[in-house]
Design a protein around this nucleic acid. Structure first.
Lengths: 243, 243
DNA sequence: AGTGCACTTCACGCTGGTTTCACGGAGTCG
DNA sequence: CGACTCCGTGAAACCAGCGTGAAGTGCACT
């Protein structure tokens, strides 16, 4: 329900047909988008690499460097992941496929309605932003993405069993705090806790994966109190700051 | 491809003239539409942003916030693309232009026949749905064009059964994310899920087509969590960049 | 209406990863 | 230096997921 008063988005429009460009540009600006404009592939590519756009609208047929080439260069050479919407006049299947292989995210066949263009642009922007908005837990140099369930430490990907992952997520959420065995057990198993002390095994296995290969351990045992996940040095440093 | 037996449509009617509102509302409801009603611009806008309507019928002249303003705010601030049909009593050219400029999709001059209104609404709803269902999904080197239902990977065209396609579309939309079995099953079958675990068969068949022939699999199983569609190497690469 | 085809659903055995459990060794605190 | 708590490890039990083919179902075409 938070309604930020943010920009609708920053768009790059690359289109040699001045008439179309003007119409589209005006329409989008009226909707609150900021629009940069280029009339040929070379300057379009130049703008694309030097600025950070939310989405790029790219005509397929352009003087000099055509849309496909621009898109390809953008992906391969500039390593840009900016969403690209391709405009194509030719309605052949071939063109669509080629465009998509070049790295375009969507396409629109001319003639099109500006409203439809806007809908597609919004979809692309939304899709792009969604990836950023997932919940990510971080402790020290370790990161857990709760949406994709991918765990990395120091850039390497780690594999942990389901319960191990759940256990880790609990500790990460509580992070600098100490969590008691009881609390962990109740959160993982609820009332049906196992007969024997299996939590320890999981702890052991978890440590083996997330701490063993690294010089600085993150998972610490607090004797007769519980466990804590934290990078000690960082904590000490920030504690010093507060003093 | 949409399985649900959906309603004719959910409509928001914003009209201060009680008599007209009642007549239109009853007429539409008799045709199977669900109709929400607001008598002034402010509450209309409020409803519009908090619900998801198939189309909004907006009177131009309203107490307080008039129709143009509502429409403009809807587009610029709420960034809604919901189709808007404007009702206007004055048949001047200027009003039409201003209305369209504010982001209305169609307009109707009072007095009008309800039958005509219904025809226009239907057209707007149809147009909007087509836009939404038209979407290009890409994961790794695989591309699904939901408009043409063409699926390609590495330039080759693939053939997948209807359910397989739907399954794939779900996974692609959520792409790097893990999707649980439950969620997939509910989205495909709704409440009428099959007795036995047929999802697995579809998964199996899908894999056979989209992954078997290629060296790098896209469809990954996350034990006791669900499934994820993603190109792992690409993800790792982009994760490394952010670090 | 009859037939054929494609898709979906179901049954069943198998594989492999995951969790649990048992037991001895090590660490920590008073 | 005891008593208590926690760690390391491997084997066994368990369960989720896989591969596959056959049976059921609906649709399209004749």
């Amino acid at each position: 329900m938070t309604v930020h008063e943010e920009q609708a988005g920053l768009i790059l429009l690359v289109e040699d047909n001045r008439q179309i460009a003007e119409m589209v540009g005006e329409f989008l600006e009226r909707l609150g988008y900021s629009v940069d404009y280029a009339a040929d592939g070379v300057s379009g590519l130049h703008l694309a690499v030097s600025n950070s756009y939310d989405v790029i609208v790219l005509d397929l047929m352009l003087p000099g460097l055509d849309g496909l080439e621009v898109c390809r260069k953008l992906r391969r050479e500039a390593k840009s992941a900016t969403p690209v919407l391709m405009l194509t006049a030719r309605d052949t299947l071939e063109d669509k496929l080629v465009g998509l292989e070049a790295g375009a995210d969507d396409y629109l066949v001319k003639p099109f309605e500006v409203r439809e263009l806007e809908a597609r642009l919004r979809a692309l922007i939304r899709r792009d932003r969604r990836q950023v908005s997932t919940e990510v837990l971080t402790v020290g140099d370790m990161t857990l993405d709760t949406a994709t369930l991918r765990l990395t430490r120091a850039g390497q990907e780690l594999t942990v069993s389901p319960i191990g992952l759940k256990l880790l997520a609990i500790l990460m959420r509580e992070s600098p705090r100490v969590v008691s065995r009881r609390d962990i057990e109740r959160e993982i198993w609820g009332d049906m806790l196992p007969d024997s002390d299996t939590l320890r095994s999981h702890l052991y296995n978890l440590r083996r994966v997330i701490d063993k290969p690294y010089p600085r351990p993150l998972l610490h045992t607090i004797h007769s109190a519980g466990y804590r996940l934290a990078d000690l040095d960082v904590e000490v440093a920030s504690a010093a700051e507060t003093v």
